[in-house]
């Protein structure tokens, strides 16, 4: 994504197409689900690309942070306990009627 050594090997159209492909597959790259040959190509072309590395790192951090929102404490902070108990009692009533 920047003017680095790897990207200089590609012409302009190839660069734009390659960067678009990377952009579309960044989640797979971060999660290790991208095909090995694609990963190798990304490392070869964008290994020293600051914007790419920063983009990938911050996407990874975003995913990690979203995962933290699923931790029990963060999850339960979403729940109004009085409302929760009220709902449970309503459902209990419907189930027993």
């Amino acid at each position: 994504m920047s003017e680095n050594e790897g990207l200089k090997k590609l012409n302009r159209e190839e660069r734009v197409a390659f960067c678009r492909e990377v952009m579309e597959n960044l989640s797979d790259l971060v999660e290790g689900e991208a095909p090995a040959d694609f990963c190798e190509r990304v490392d070869e072309i964008l290994g020293d690309c600051q914007p790419f590395n920063a983009y990938r790192n911050t996407l990874e951090a975003t995913i990690d942070l979203a995962g933290e929102c699923g931790d029990t404490e963060a999850e339960f902070a979403q729940v109004d306990e009085d409302a929760f108990l009220r709902c449970v009692e309503k459902v209990r009533g419907k189930l027993s009627s």
């Binding site: 920063a54 983009y55 790192n57 951090a61």
Partner: peptide
């Protein structure tokens, strides 16, 4: 919507790396 500035010229400026939470 998420293309970094300069994308079309493949001359993207540095992107801040705030990944160290």
């Amino acid at each position: 919507d998420f293309k970094p500035a300069g994308w079309d010229d493949t001359m993207t400026a540095e992107i801040p790396d705030w990944s160290a939470l």
